[in-house]
Amino acid sequence: MTRVEYIRQLEFSLSGKLSKKEISDILRDYTEYFEAGKAEGKSEEEIVRALGIPSVVAAQILSENEEERTAEKSAPVKVGERVRGWAEKLSAWWKKAWACIAAFFRGLLSPEDRLILLHGQEEAPPRADTGGEPGDVPPPPPPGKAKRVKRAPSPRRPFWQWIAGVACGIFLLPLAAMGLLGGGLILLGIALTLAMLALGLILLFLFGLILAFCGALGVSFFAGILPGSAVAVGILLTVASVAGGVFALCLGILLFRGTAWLVRFCLGKSREAWRRRPDRDGGWSAQDETQGGML
């Protein structure tokens, strides 16, 4: 194969897959390589053999390009890909939220109930570290509970786990109430804004009609005062309702975010604590791992 043939094959393998500018840049590099080899007294045949098969070289160029593109986050993304990215994010969020809810309800069950649910037996399965003192060591606290309680409960006493469960319930109740209140306020704000806006617009329209009517009749008194003040009231009402709605909306969003932040704060802290726990029981580990991954 000659140099011209080599370059042509390389161009053929790359064409359509890279921009013209990139291809000409690449071909320039290889041409330079041939020239430099020739200056050292190598034959074209030798250089071609050392370079390797053009299609393989082209494949590597393309794969390196691919690598670089995935490494570059700022690269422009197509609209479809972006939408798919959002959808994936949304579904990931939903999965996380669902895992939180599920963990919460699992946390409400006592450890014994969980064991029975998990293994379908009356007795808890034997554990590796209970050899010396059977029945004395309780199972590790369920992850749902451990995640929510700031003071890590002693794993030795199921009693503490009950306290922790109740505490976490008490702790979460106002949070849930706050979240509900926030959501309600947001909805109320939107509804109120829309309703008042409609009312204000109707008023404006009606008194506009009266104004036109009076004007047509030539009644100067009514035309001047009554519709004029009515229009002012309509405008005021509209502005006030919009402002009220926006205020309610902001308050609702703030409440919602505050709740979310609190939940994340509590979950985040105790999640770390849970991760650091040594694995005490093979029976739990698989499930705990999945939860740790999801939360």
Binding site: V56, I61, E64, N65
Partner: peptide, 22 residues
């Protein structure tokens, strides 16, 4: 590089290109 180890010499340029664009 080729004087120490056997490589397909054509495969060095793609790496150079990537490192440059990075």
């Amino acid at each position: 590089i080729a004087q120490y180890t056997e490589i397909a010499e054509g495969t060095v340029y793609p790496i150079l290109r990537r490192l440059t664009s990075e």
